[in-house]
Amino acid sequence: MGLISEVLLLPFAPVRGSGWVMGQVLKEAERIYYDPSTIRAELARLEEQLDAGEITEEEFDRQEDELLDRMESATRRSAGTDDGWSG
């Protein structure tokens, strides 16, 4: 970009900076969300809840399926084959 366009766009710098920060936060949140160790820890907690009688078998099955789907997505993402669409 030229100097004139930089000067004209200067008032929008905070917006562009905020957009960049939000993008970085989103990337970090996705990294944590799809981290296999995080998913395994959530599966362990889920099993503990079932054993303690805090959730029903049906609720356990539903949440376990969601976590296993997330684990599969994480595997595809790390292999670079996930296109971002599920279904």
Rank of each mutant, 00 (worst) to 15 (best):
residue 58 E to R: 15
residue 2 G to S: 14
residue 58 E to A: 13
residue 11 P to Q: 12
residue 64 E to A: 09
residue 78 S to N: 06
residue 28 E to V: 09
residue 42 E to R: 06
residue 73 S to W: 01
residue 22 M to T: 06
residue 85 W to D: 09
residue 25 V to P: 01
residue 47 E to H: 08
residue 36 P to Y: 07
residue 62 R to N: 05
residue 5 S to T: 15
residue 43 L to Q: 15
residue 62 R to E: 15
residue 38 T to R: 06
residue 75 T to M: 04
residue 60 F to M: 01
residue 51 D to I: 04
residue 44 A to W: 02
residue 83 D to S: 12
residue 41 A to F: 08
residue 20 W to C: 07
residue 33 Y to L: 08
residue 24 Q to T: 04
residue 64 E to V: 00
residue 29 A to V: 06
residue 50 L to Q: 07
residue 56 T to M: 04
residue 14 P to K: 02
residue 78 S to T: 05
residue 78 S to P: 00
residue 7 V to A: 15
residue 66 E to Y: 10
residue 69 D to M: 10
residue 37 S to E: 12
residue 44 A to L: 09
residue 3 L to P: 09
residue 70 R to N: 06
residue 87 G to Y: 04
residue 61 D to P: 00
residue 22 M to V: 10
residue 17 G to R: 11
residue 65 D to S: 13
residue 76 R to F: 03
residue 29 A to M: 08
residue 68 L to F: 05
residue 55 I to G: 02
residue 20 W to S: 11
residue 60 F to G: 01
residue 79 A to D: 04
residue 9 L to V: 06
residue 19 G to L: 14
residue 69 D to G: 11
residue 84 G to L: 04
residue 75 T to S: 09
residue 41 A to Y: 06
residue 14 P to Y: 03
residue 41 A to K: 12
residue 67 L to Y: 08
residue 36 P to L: 03
residue 38 T to K: 01
residue 2 G to N: 14
residue 53 G to K: 04
residue 3 L to Y: 09
residue 9 L to D: 14
residue 69 D to N: 13
residue 63 Q to P: 00
residue 51 D to G: 01
residue 67 L to T: 09
residue 46 L to P: 08
residue 57 E to G: 07
residue 25 V to L: 11
residue 69 D to V: 10
residue 23 G to H: 11
residue 15 V to K: 01
residue 64 E to L: 03
residue 69 D to R: 14
residue 2 G to Y: 09
residue 55 I to R: 02
residue 17 G to K: 12
residue 2 G to Q: 07
residue 62 R to D: 12
residue 78 S to D: 08
residue 31 R to E: 15
residue 45 R to Y: 05
residue 11 P to C: 15
residue 57 E to A: 11
residue 77 R to M: 13
residue 53 G to E: 01
residue 45 R to V: 04
residue 78 S to C: 00
residue 15 V to M: 08
residue 4 I to G: 08
residue 65 D to I: 00
residue 44 A to D: 13
residue 7 V to N: 07
residue 54 E to S: 04
residue 79 A to V: 00
residue 78 S to A: 12
residue 2 G to H: 05
residue 43 L to K: 14
residue 57 E to R: 13
residue 29 A to H: 02
residue 14 P to S: 06
residue 85 W to Y: 10
residue 9 L to P: 01
residue 80 G to C: 03
residue 48 E to I: 04
residue 36 P to K: 05
residue 52 A to S: 05
residue 80 G to I: 01
residue 59 E to G: 01
residue 60 F to P: 01
residue 65 D to T: 10
residue 75 T to F: 02
residue 70 R to T: 11
residue 32 I to T: 12
residue 22 M to K: 11
residue 8 L to W: 13
residue 78 S to K: 07
residue 78 S to H: 02
residue 11 P to A: 14
residue 53 G to R: 03
residue 50 L to V: 01
residue 58 E to I: 09
residue 21 V to A: 11
residue 9 L to A: 15
residue 48 E to S: 10
residue 57 E to K: 09
residue 86 S to M: 08
residue 53 G to Y: 01
residue 26 L to Q: 14
residue 13 A to M: 15
residue 86 S to W: 03
residue 19 G to P: 07
residue 39 I to V: 02
residue 59 E to Q: 11
residue 72 E to R: 15
residue 62 R to T: 11
residue 9 L to I: 07
residue 19 G to N: 12
residue 35 D to M: 06
residue 18 S to K: 12
residue 75 T to P: 00
residue 46 L to E: 05
residue 78 S to E: 11
